[in-house]
Design a protein around this nucleic acid. Sequence first.
DNA 1: GATGAATGAGCCTTCATTCAT
DNA 2: GATGAATGAAGGCTCATTCAT
Lengths: 217, 217, 217, 217
Amino acid sequence: MPVSQAQPRWQRRADARPQELLDAALAEFVERGYAATRLEEVARRAGVAKATLYLYYENKLELFKAVVRHSLVAAFDELAKEQRDAATSARAQLTKLLAAFVHRVAESPLSGLPKLVIAEASNFPDVARFYHDEMIRRGREVFTGVLERGIASGEFRAVDVDHAWRIVIAPLLLSIIWKHSFAAFEAAPLDFERHLDAHLDLLFNGLATDRRKRIRR
Amino acid sequence: MPVSQAQPRWQRRADARPQELLDAALAEFVERGYAATRLEEVARRAGVAKATLYLYYENKLELFKAVVRHSLVAAFDELAKEQRDAATSARAQLTKLLAAFVHRVAESPLSGLPKLVIAEASNFPDVARFYHDEMIRRGREVFTGVLERGIASGEFRAVDVDHAWRIVIAPLLLSIIWKHSFAAFEAAPLDFERHLDAHLDLLFNGLATDRRKRIRR
Amino acid sequence: MPVSQAQPRWQRRADARPQELLDAALAEFVERGYAATRLEEVARRAGVAKATLYLYYENKLELFKAVVRHSLVAAFDELAKEQRDAATSARAQLTKLLAAFVHRVAESPLSGLPKLVIAEASNFPDVARFYHDEMIRRGREVFTGVLERGIASGEFRAVDVDHAWRIVIAPLLLSIIWKHSFAAFEAAPLDFERHLDAHLDLLFNGLATDRRKRIRR
Amino acid sequence: MPVSQAQPRWQRRADARPQELLDAALAEFVERGYAATRLEEVARRAGVAKATLYLYYENKLELFKAVVRHSLVAAFDELAKEQRDAATSARAQLTKLLAAFVHRVAESPLSGLPKLVIAEASNFPDVARFYHDEMIRRGREVFTGVLERGIASGEFRAVDVDHAWRIVIAPLLLSIIWKHSFAAFEAAPLDFERHLDAHLDLLFNGLATDRRKRIRR
DNA sequence: GATGAATGAGCCTTCATTCAT
DNA sequence: GATGAATGAAGGCTCATTCAT
């Protein structure tokens, strides 16, 4: 297998940089969007001077990219902690995947990443493409994999996997978007746990009544 | 009949103008976000001079609010066309609602609205609150209403309605976000029709195998 | 005597124009200054549309010049009503002149003119020069004339006429500037009558009690 | 000793800056008025970039206010250098006050302040009120004080002090307004010294020769 | 002649970026 | 390495001016 000739578009360079800067920048970017984020604010939040940012990142765009790249890697790392042993049932595995997403991503600052990328996708297509190629593609692989395994094993019905994988994660993705957009206007914060339960219940059992209902997970 | 030699420098279109401006502004705001949208561009897209915008809207923020307000109303109008007759089954009604959302919102420029509001929620909390109070609250009412009716009538299982309503719309909402963010990077554009079918299938029947499978709608 | 070859810098053209426009413009220019005056406001005050102004004046500057020119002429007309018969004493004549200034200029809208010209002198040197050459020069002539006549006749002491004329009008000029600048902050409006009396008293009799103190400070 | 080849793009002068900016701004504001003054010009005159102004003053209006405030204080400081010892005669003291005004204010850049405030009074009432309350009120107090003392001691006639104080300063105030408005159009610049002499002469001795004419006009 | 609608040019203000210490 | 000070390059907004009716 030949080594790719081209320079990787995303170097690892900045990953050694202070975590504080990236944390501050992620928070600001998520809260305000790329354009409305002022480096002054990022710096203040990180407790450094504005000019200091330039010691670590060439410019605002590079900082932005580093934030996305770094958060992406962090998200992977978090999810990877959940070893996907193929020994268990597809249903158990799917449950585990979704739970991991909730516990390790949705409830952490990393949850801002999807919102950020979505909001800036048309302004920074290469960032969106990067996210798409790295995160979404892998997500799709993982989820379609489980679905197909379940179908093959007879655990799952023969659903339209190409679309089902999106439907499976949609409620969770949407919940983190919710959290970053409308949380302030709701009486009580969204209960991720119950939300996940409700999703799994619907997902496995469907909405329509059936006399031979399965036991909740 | 002699053709006038000179093009008039501009047209007088006081009536059509507001709509044209809102259309242009919606497109730009959705594409770039509030901060990165230049009024120059909005104006160019609408075919007017920048200053003309100020004849109709006091400033950028007011234009933004008008866009959201107007799009919201337009979305309602679209959805209202689908009369929700309580005569039919809850299932048929839910199906109709979701189909209406796909056909009348997701596939129109109005589909940009959710993405826009989500992206700018923390920058403009009052806009987000407005959207939340007007759109989301009503959406919740409609969907929880159908769910409760279905449960009451025995059509649906006794699911956790407070969460289920979100899960029911999540795949559709996400699909329009998708369309505005990652469409460019996918081989084929998302097929809303198949997506809806897949969702309805999963929603009503669940993922897990069941011998007494219901008929697809 | 040859006719002047050059075009007069200030035509009489606009003097036939609606008085309303000039009145409105004078008021606005005096109140806000040239730059801060919006033609929109002038038009509104005159009860016409902005574009209508352009039917009468080429542009803002021409309107401004017309206002100054017209007000100047009006001021002259007012003052000319006071026939200066050389039969009376210099003192009576001087008194009459100052009284006329108070009653015909200071207490009319024309009082805004000096303030206006002063404020805009460096922005529009030709306007200032015009005012200087027309108004001030004539004022100087009139007042130095009276002073010299009084000195010649023995009514007045042999004062430094070149400076005295300014001193003679200073309190009145300043009073109208006052009126247009600080009137709002004073408990009672300036009583022009008493002010004039006080001035005349001081002017003719001096401040010091001892009539034999002729030593310079 | 080698000369540095390149001029530094800018100097670091945080200490001197504010004063330089205020000086430049005062000059421009006096020359053009608030509205017509472009910050670009102020900056150029001060030798800095436009944006630098914003490091020291929030916006144009704040700069304007700072200019007025600062000039006012500076004027006070100048005048305060003239200790007003009550030991001398009222006449000597009045003379001293007026001379101080001429030498320390009229002949300095501070002389532009009254013209500036007068011109912008109706645009910025709070600035005018500030000037009125700080400068004018104190001026009135000082001058009426001296007049009353002189009257009490028998040095001065019993004049109408409420109006006399204005008359006493009017020629000097007007002279500085003159200087900033019409100086360019006169053959010779106004000789402040002679002007002051002429004023004092008239002020103390009056215009009329006959010391027994007490009949009111 | 009058005016509502439209616009081009200009200025204030912000902010990413750079320089000097 | 860190930062306060400075700036150039936008972009929002205003307004004198012009066009079409």
